[in-house]
């Protein structure tokens, strides 16, 4: 976890703490993945910095590596038939791997 100036936020970063306004009301919840819209909203509200997860713990932090690996393999088995017409193309194979990885982290 680290503090990040709002001006340096990038979509995809995940909030490590709730962002609250001056009255203590939660504006954006912990765990939210930042989108352009949310970042713009924070800037508009004059938020100067927020706590985000550090890049090495931004995904699957709670999941242990072995479990994640299993889940990725599981997703690969689901996706392989869907990619049957294009998995011999290098860029499509990389899309399949990335999709398996993204789905494993979410499911």
């Amino acid at each position: 976890m680290r503090e990040q100036d709002t001006s340096n936020l990038v979509p995809g970063m995940r909030l490590a703490r709730d962002v609250k306004d001056a009255s203590g009301m939660v504006m954006v919840k912990e765990g939210t993945v930042l989108s352009d819209g949310i970042i713009a909203g924070l800037k508009r509200r004059g938020v100067s910095s927020v706590m985000v997860e550090a890049s090495d713990d931004k995904t699957g932090a709670a999941m242990d590596t072995a479990e994640l690996k299993d889940k990725i393999l599981e997703q690969m088995e689901i996706l392989r038939p869907l990619f049957s017409r294009c998995s011999n193309m290098e860029w499509m194979a990389s899309l399949m791997k990335a999709a398996a990885s993204a789905r494993a982290r979410r499911h």
Binding site: L82, C86, M89, M92, A99
Partner: peptide, 20 residues
């Protein structure tokens, strides 16, 4: 990408080659 991530379901479920 939507098909690869299985966001919804098109009536063509297979992922087709993306133009390089």
């Amino acid at each position: 990408i939507a098909k690869a991530l299985m966001l919804g379901r098109s009536n063509e479920m297979l992922v087709m080659p993306i133009d390089k």
